[in-house]
Design a protein around this nucleic acid. Structure first.
Lengths: 389, 389
DNA sequence: CCTGAATTTGTAATCGATTACAAAGCGCAC
DNA sequence: GTGCGCTTTGTAATCGATTACAAATTCAGG
C-alpha cells in the first residue's frame, strides 16, 4: 500500500529501484515472484526523508565548490586553498561522504585491493602469514581479498577471474604449488605478484622464503645430535616446492651424518593431520627393531597426529621415538609433549611480502631475488635421546 | 565547439580507440625513465605487440555485433539469437575477455562481493565458519572480503569504509561483539547483514546461531552426570553475547543439579590459550580439597591450555579433573587426552548464513527470526568420573 | 497483403568518481 | 601598465560496463 508515493518525484526508475531500500519484509504485492531486479541499491530517498548515500556532487554543492575541487581536497589537500579545503572537509564530515569505490576504480584504474591466495586457510601457519600481510596492507591503505584454494583446483579459475576483472591491484601467492595456469594468466595481464614460502620458477616474481633445505638439515642434525641413527621422513605432497627443498635438505644432512639408505624411511604426506596418522600407522606396522627412533615431519599437524597415534599404541614420545615438526604453530605448545619444531616467522613473512607487493604495485622497482628470512629450531619436549636398547 | 559534428554518421570512436587499440600512454618516449608514470596498469602493449586486456567493445567488434548484444549474451543468453550468441561466446573465448568489475559495479550497483567480519581469524572455529561461507558464496557467484578484527577496535573503521565505499553487497558478522557503531552505520546505509553465532540486539538482522545456553547446560549435565559436584567455569569476555548466554546456561544447569554457589567458581577468560593457562594457575592456587573436579570452558583453546598447564603441575586429566571444551576444533582430537567438547557445526553455520545473506541481497524476503542449528556434546577422553576421595 | 504483437538488435544515456585542459586569479619584474 | 609564470579553480572528457528506449525484424492472424 505505501507504494503510491514512490512515483512522486523520482525519475523513471524501475519500480523495484524506486522501492529500493525498504525493509525486505514489506514486500508490497501478493505475488511471490518479485525476484531480484534491484538495479541500484544506492541513492533513493526511500520516502523516509533519510538522505541517500551522498555523492561527490552533493559534497561539492554543500561546500560551494566544484567536484574537481572536492576530489582534490581529498586526494591532494595541498593543491587546494586552505579555505576551500576546510569547507570541503566539513561538508564531507557532515554528509558522511565516502567516495564510491567502483567509480574511483573505473576511472583511476586502481582498486587498493590485494588478492591473497591461500592453499588452506585452516592451517594456522598460513593464518599467521595472512595476519602479517593484513597488518602491512592495512597500514598501506590496501584491503585484502582472501582466496582459499582449500586444495580444490577449480577455485583457481574463480580467483583468476577476480584478478582479471580488475578487482585487485596485485596478488600474494602463498601456495607451495603456485597455480601454474593462473599465475601465467595473471602475469600476462600485468598483475604484480609476490610469492610467500614458495620459490617460483619464474624469477620475475619476487618471493619471501625461508631456507627450506637448511631447515630440514637442522631437523636432522638435531636428531642425529641426540644420537638417533634411524630416521623417518614424513613428507609433503610430491612436486610441492617446499617439499622438494626439504627432502633435499633431509637427505643431504642424513648423508653427511653417515646414514645410509637403509637407515631412512619415507612416509608420503600432505601436511594434514590425517597424513600424520597414516604415517604413524606405517611406523607401527614395522617390526619394533626396524622402527626409526627419530621422525622428521614437514608440518606440525602431521607431527602432532603422528605423536597422538603412536602414543595410543603405547609408543612413548620422546622415550621411544622423537618427533620434530615444522612451522611452529601455537597449539604445538599446548599439546603433550610440547612439540619440538622449526619455527617459521610466518607473520614477518606475510608482512614483508605485503610490503614488497605494495612496492611493486606502486611501480617502485624492487631489488631482485628472494628475501630469505630466518627459521629457527625450537627445542621442546617431543625429542630426546633414542631408547638405549 | 569541436564536439558538434562528431555524432554525424561515422563511428564516433575516440582517437585512441580508432588508432587500433594503443595505450593512452604510448607517447613517443625516448626517456629511459619509464617505470613510474604508470597511470593505468592495464592495457599496455609493452612493446611486444601483445594485446591489452580486451574490453567489451573489442568483443563486439570481433563478433560483429553491438556491445549491448555482448552484454546480453553473457548476462541473459536466452535473449539473444543462438547465432549471435555463439559468435559472441567464441569471441569472448578467443580474446579471453572478462568484464571489468569496476565498470560493472558502477553501472549495475552490485559488486558480488561480501564482507566477512571475523573477530579472530586464527581461531579454527571461525575458520570453519569462513570456509562454509566461502563454499556457499562461491556457489552463488559471490566473492569474499575478509576483515579480521583481530580484537583491534580501529580496524572496524576501515571495514565500515569498505562497506560504505560500495565495495560490497552485504556483510557477514561473526563477531560475538557486533561492532556497534559499525553495524549501525552499515545498517543506515542499507547494507544487508547476517550475524553468525551472535544474537544481534537488532531483530532486523537475521542470524545463525546455536543455542548457547542449552549447550552450556549440556556441558554441566555431562559433568554432573559423571558425579562431579564442584565446577569451574572458564568464561569468555564479559559482555560478549555468547558468553552471557553460556553463563546463564551454566548457572541454570548447576542450580538444577542442586549445586550451590559455594560449589561454583569462575575464571575470567577470553577464548584464548593464554586465558586457559591463567585459569589453570587459578585452579592450581586453590587448596587441593577446594579444587573443582569438573571444568567447563567456553572454548577449546582455553580447555587445551588448561589441561596442559595442570598436567604440568602433576594434575591428571581426567583422573583428577575433568574438562569440557566448546567449539569442536579439529586439533582437539590430536591432543592427549582427546578433548570432550561441544561440537558447533561451524561449517554449516557459515554456509547457512551465507545463503541467508545472498537471499537478502537479492531482495528475497527471508522468514524472520534466527536459525538455530544443533550443537552436540562430543564425549572423548578429557572427562571421566571425579576422583573418589 | 496488411496490421499489430513479439522478438531481436543497436544507439546512446548512465553510473560517480578522477583528471586533462583551459580559464581565472595573483604576484612580480620590467 | 603590461606581460610572464605560478597557483587555484572549474568544465567536461573519460573509464567500461549495463540498460532504457527505439528501430528493425519476424511472425501470426485476418
Amino acid at each position: 500500500m505505501p507504494t503510491s508515493r514512490r512515483s512522486a518525484k523520482t525519475p523513471p526508475r524501475t519500480p523495484a529501484a524506486a522501492a529500493g531500500r525498504r525493509t525486505p519484509t514489506d514486500a508490497p504485492n501478493g505475488t511471490p515472484a518479485d525476484p531480484a531486479a534491484r538495479p541500484r541499491s544506492r541513492s533513493a530517498t526511500d520516502g523516509s526523508g533519510r538522505p541517500a548515500l551522498p555523492k561527490i556532487a552533493d559534497v561539492a554543492a554543500r561546500a560551494g565548490v566544484s567536484t574537481a575541487t572536492v576530489s582534490r581536497a581529498l586526494a591532494a589537500p595541498d593543491s587546494v586553498s586552505p579555505d576551500k579545503r576546510e569547507r570541503v572537509l566539513a561538508a564531507v564530515r557532515e554528509l558522511g561522504y565516502t567516495p564510491n569505490a567502483a567509480a574511483r576504480n573505473l576511472r583511476a584504474g586502481r582498486t587498493s585491493m590485494v588478492l591473497v591466495v591461500v592453499p588452506k586457510l585452516a592451517n594456522p601457519f598460513f593464518n599467521g602469514v595472512v595476519r602479517g600481510a593484513d597488518e602491512a596492507l592495512t597500514a598501506e591503505g590496501f584491503g585484502m581479498i582472501i582466496g582459499d584454494l582449500d586444495n580444490t583446483a577449480d577455485k583457481e579459475h574463480r580467483l583468476v577471474d577476480i584478478a582479471l576483472a580488475g578487482h585487485i591491484d596485485g596478488a600474494l601467492i602463498l601456495s607451495g604449488r603456485v597455480p601454474r595456469h593462473g599465475a601465467r594468466t595473471m602475469k600476462q595481464a600485468g598483475i604484480p605478484m609476490v610469492g610467500v614460502c614458495v620459490a617460483s620458477d619464474d624469477p620475475q616474481i619476487p618471493a619471501v622464503l625461508i631456507d627450506d633445505a637448511a631447515a630440514a638439515r637442522t631437523q636432522v642434525e638435531h636428531l642425529v645430535g641426540l644420537g638417533h641413527r634411524r630416521l623417518l621422513y614424513v613428507s609433503g605432497p610430491r612436486g610441492n616446492g617446499n617439499e622438494i627443498a626439504r627432502w633435499r635438505g633431509f637427505t643431504e644432512a642424513a648423508a653427511a651424518a653417515g646414514l645410509g639408505a637403509e637407515a631412512i624411511q619415507r612416509a608420503e604426506g600432505d601436511y594434514t593431520f590425517a597424513a600424520g596418522t597414516r604415517a604413524a600407522d606405517l611406523f607401527l606396522a614395522l617390526p619394533a627393531e626396524r622402527r626409526p627412533t627419530g621422525v622428521v615431519a614437514v608440518s606440525d599437524e602431521m607431527a602432532l597426529a603422528f605423536i597422538r597415534r603412536v602414543a595410543e599404541a603405547g609408543v612413548r614420545v620422546p622415550g621411544d621415538v622423537s618427533v620434530v615438526g615444522f612451522d611452529g604453530i601455537e597449539v604445538g605448545d599446548y599439546c603433550a609433549p610440547r612439540l619440538t619444531t622449526i619455527r617459521q616467522p610466518s607473520r614477518d613473512m606475510g608482512r614483508e611480502a605485503a610490503r614488497l607487493l605494495v612496492a611493486a604495485i606502486r611501480g617502485e622497482p624492487s631489488p631482485p631475488g628472494a628475501r630469505v628470512l630466518g627459521a629457527e629450531l625450537k627445542v621442546a619436549e617431543s625429542t630426546g635421546a633414542p631408547p638405549r636398547r
